[in-house]
């Protein structure tokens, strides 16, 4: 009974840990750094990873392509976040991009 309680507690506590590896904010120079807060877009792409067996990082390129499509006139501010959601013998890597379109 004690062990069952212990296992249940562990199972509950072990849920959904994450790790943010980096969060970068960048602003344009000269004319572009006059931030006119227009459209802020948000893009999130992820890749499921089982025990490290993945062979490309194309999800990041896909997120960047989406950014180019959503901001045809370019960006004035950008925030890139790279994080991992941990799981049972597997994890999910995520890229989140937030940008202020010009």
């Amino acid at each position: 009974m004690k062990k069952l309680f212990l296992l249940l507690t562990v199972a509950m506590l072990s849920a959904c840990t994450s790790s943010i590896h980096m969060s970068q904010v960048d602003v344009g120079s000269n004319d572009a750094n006059n931030v006119d807060i227009g459209k802020v877009i948000e893009i999130e792409k992820s890749q499921k990873n089982i025990l490290g067996f993945v062979y490309d990082t194309d999800y990041v390129d896909l997120a960047y392509k989406n950014l180019l499509l959503e901001c045809p006139n370019g960006t004035s501010m950008i925030n890139v976040e790279y994080l991992t959601n941990h799981g049972f013998f597997s994890w999910t890597d995520k890229i989140r991009i937030k940008a202020v379109c010009l």
């Binding site: 980096m22 572009a32 960006t75």
Partner: peptide
């Protein structure tokens, strides 16, 4: 991953 401002 890092990105700088995207030009038009």
């Amino acid at each position: 991953v890092s990105m700088t401002q995207v030009p038009a």
